[in-house]
Nucleic acid binder design. Sequence first.
DNA 1: CTGATGCTTCGGCTATGATCGAAGTATGAA
DNA 2: TTCATACTTCGATCATAGCCGAAGCATCAG
Lengths: 233, 233
Amino acid sequence: MKEGPVIASVAALLGDPARANILTALMDGRALTVSELAEAAGVTLQTASGHLAKLDAANLLTAEKQGRHRYFRLSGPDVAQVLEALMGLAQRTGATRVRTGPRDAALRSARICYDHLAGERGVALLKAARQQGLIDGDRDLALTTKGRAFFADFGIDLAALEKGRRPVCRACLDWSERHSHLGGALGAALLSRMIDRGWMRRDTGRVLTFTCEGVEGFEAAFAPPGEGASQAA
Amino acid sequence: MKEGPVIASVAALLGDPARANILTALMDGRALTVSELAEAAGVTLQTASGHLAKLDAANLLTAEKQGRHRYFRLSGPDVAQVLEALMGLAQRTGATRVRTGPRDAALRSARICYDHLAGERGVALLKAARQQGLIDGDRDLALTTKGRAFFADFGIDLAALEKGRRPVCRACLDWSERHSHLGGALGAALLSRMIDRGWMRRDTGRVLTFTCEGVEGFEAAFAPPGEGASQAA
DNA sequence: CTGATGCTTCGGCTATGATCGAAGTATGAA
DNA sequence: TTCATACTTCGATCATAGCCGAAGCATCAG
């Protein structure tokens, strides 16, 4: 009887279509202006402004003022995680539409979840990392000694990651797959490193498009041991 | 722009205080009746009924009808997971438990459910029968060969039971324990036989009072799996 | 300065939906 | 059978809040 209103106040904020559109538009971790968010949500500027004020007051968003613009971003990965969880729930319970476009397929394949890799590729990465003994644990993930060597070799400064307050490894439930992908500081660093390497590029929105070398490199690095076959479609 | 409304429809359901109270009350995985949920939510019966219809239509809950009662439970662990994530976002303060079931300890211990044994003893009976390999199946129960021998030896005419239209074994949801106990023709015959043996007697109302020999005999026949030995299976 | 752009606030309209009383249905008990 | 309990449905009331037009600040360019 006490918890209900607590979660209700947050859920009610996510329960308005305009606000939900705003939040999903921000799910790629980037910051957008009020005007951009108004267009994404399909409402007028002043309506969006009102919504953003509420989301900001609830600390779901953070605002940064730059000149005449005001940039909003999600206040943290946990917001994105909740949104992903809600999408997964909506899909399982049948609230999602049957209509699936090409953009939907691309989203399913590889996308950004706040700041790390999600979708089929994201799930495959964590699965392979587990199988290769790089990462241990089921719900709470931990780097193995072998994993530390691997990711250091991949070009990631683990010591720097561990200095931050953010957990290095975190399991994040994928809404399109049914399994977890790798979030946390390591997940973010990995995505950043893979983009640096030219393995993929960010399109508009959350879609990640793999390059040819990217597919090659990704499958070489995160291949299930003993299985050379790639998953072609 | 398409995903927003999808998550909004789900989130809006969680965004009402009464519904949020209902869902949090169900978070422990047990099933509760409409009345109990109405009290937990702090609304009247008809209001709760309306909310439950919506949550059921959205497949967030599943309903089980049992006589005059309708038991609701979360439709899956993912629902609870979303709620937990929301609580985390809302900086939860502490867990709340909903008082459920009868206040009367005697009723809780052993009572008649229609015509068979219910309460702690009833749940223990079915649990033991499963563990001893007398009864098989999860939702739909069935007698094993070993079970047929056991109950025949107990003094029950299984052939007669099977002639009737009534199902021999039936899982019946216990309203104080929130686990199943044994109903059906066999459940009724068992209770009748145990009363004949002097294991228990009917008080006024539905309370069943075990005699000393009853406790002894009951625990010998249906040894609690957690007694002394470990629960490994 | 003037004018333009980006955003916020105010005011009023409107729709959604939460709520409960009362009546109706289904099941169990006497 | 008749009565009681558990729940659903209907109907009407009422509060919340989403929405946009218009006006008000703030910043920048000229």
